[in-house]
Design a protein around this nucleic acid. Sequence first.
DNA 1: GTGACGATAATCT
DNA 2: GATTATCGTCACA
Length: 210
Amino acid sequence: MTVRMPPPLPAAFFCRPTAEVARDLLGTDLWRRLPDGALLSGRIVETEAYFGPDDEASHAFRRTPRSEVMYGPGGRAYVYFTYGMHFCLNVVCGRQGKPGAVLLRALEPRVDLERMAALRGPAARDGRGGVDSRKLCSGPARLAQALAVDRTLNGADLRGEILRLTRGTSPLPDPAVVVTPRIGIRRATERYARYVVADSPFLSRPLPRH
DNA sequence: GTGACGATAATCT
DNA sequence: GATTATCGTCACA
């Protein structure tokens, strides 16, 4: 049977404060249509909010050509290149002129894991050559690679045919969500702006035991 | 299981 | 010229 893309999230979903969008993106489904027609999808289990000029860890701390998309209207993709080899995918939120974006840090892969593994390369396979589903999309650069997201998708509509966000099981109830400090950054590390699905085995880093 | 390290280039100062 | 919203590999336990 053929998998079809459900209708996109409403435009109003994205035109809200960044922290709210980051939290409510948990449980939604990200869809990607490849140029050859293949359809890939995964459920969002980890996000991080990046704010505006008051957030020194955010690319929008300064308004530059790279961060310009973050100043535009919500509902578009912000894709940047870093460490000389990785792409990361963000969801722009807020209104025109109010910068903010949510970094997608991990997905639970759900549609066409074989194709994702082919895009990821040998690092996503186990010792016997099988797909290791936890190595496909558990990290911002990993999920971008698994969905073939690169700079050409910067500014793309997240309610379109190439990239789309759909409702999935969102919004998740409060007990299912945990908020932690952001990771992988050196500035503003005290800010609690990382949102994770507490019991997901697909996080980029497991939650500390308590 | 954990931690150190190098890869590699766009972006900004 | 310095920095980087990362990952895979390797050593070691």
